[in-house]
């Protein structure tokens, strides 16, 4: 079978999706010209049918009216918003101050400052988290053996205050 393409050579994949080419290889210049005009105009009209279809079909609209739909806008369960430290009803958390998350962090966004408990053992003093340098890579959460930190599903993280980007995650010092 002769190749209908003018420029392209043989191809290894099927041409079912390629543009239909009606130009016979041995057609005269005039015939080529007219076939090109006809196929060209047909192709333009086909394209116009696609856009008008979208124009009259409201189901194709993908825009969401964002601030209005805030209530029904739920992020995925695994969404990585920011690092949060869940506290239970007594205001306690699971962090032991082992600094595994600090070591796992690729860009030093976590600083674990430990203090001494009255008994002389080390406990968590301050858990400093810097959202400004955090890349939300999830490595700290994976490193934590106690499930003390997790990723929040909050996504509106933009702020106008630089200070709000550095925060202390624990509300209380750690337990023994």
């Amino acid at each position: 079978m002769s190749n209908p393409r003018d420029i392209l050579g043989p191809q290894r994949f099927s041409q079912s999706h390629a543009a239909p080419k009606l130009i016979p290889p041995n057609a005269s210049v005039t015939k080529r010209y007219f076939i090109r005009v006809v196929t060209g105009v047909t192709s333009l009209l086909t394209g116009m049918r696609v856009t008008i279809g979208k124009f009259f079909d409201p189901r194709t609209t993908v825009t969401q009216q964002y601030p209005e739909n805030r209530d029904e806008l739920k992020m995925a369960e695994r969404f990585r918003g920011r690092v949060v430290m869940p506290h239970d009803a007594d205001g306690e958390h699971n962090c032991t101050g082992c600094t595994l998350c600090e070591k796992a962090c690729p860009n030093g966004s976590i600083s674990v400052l430990n203090t001494k408990h009255a008994s002389g053992r080390k406990i968590l003093g301050k858990y400093i988290y810097r959202l400004d340098s955090c890349t939300l890579c999830n490595l700290c959460i994976e490193a934590c053996p106690f499930g003390a930190i997790e990723m929040g599903t909050e996504f509106e993280l933009a702020t106008t205050r630089k200070e709000g980007l550095v925060e202390i995650l624990n509300k209380k010092a750690g337990r023994l």
Partner: peptide, 16 residues
């Protein structure tokens, strides 16, 4: 969608 793209762009004379 690829079929639709074929109609909208690939086959388009100007695009070719």
């Amino acid at each position: 969608a690829l079929d639709e793209y074929q109609r909208l762009v690939t086959g388009n004379l100007i695009f070719q």
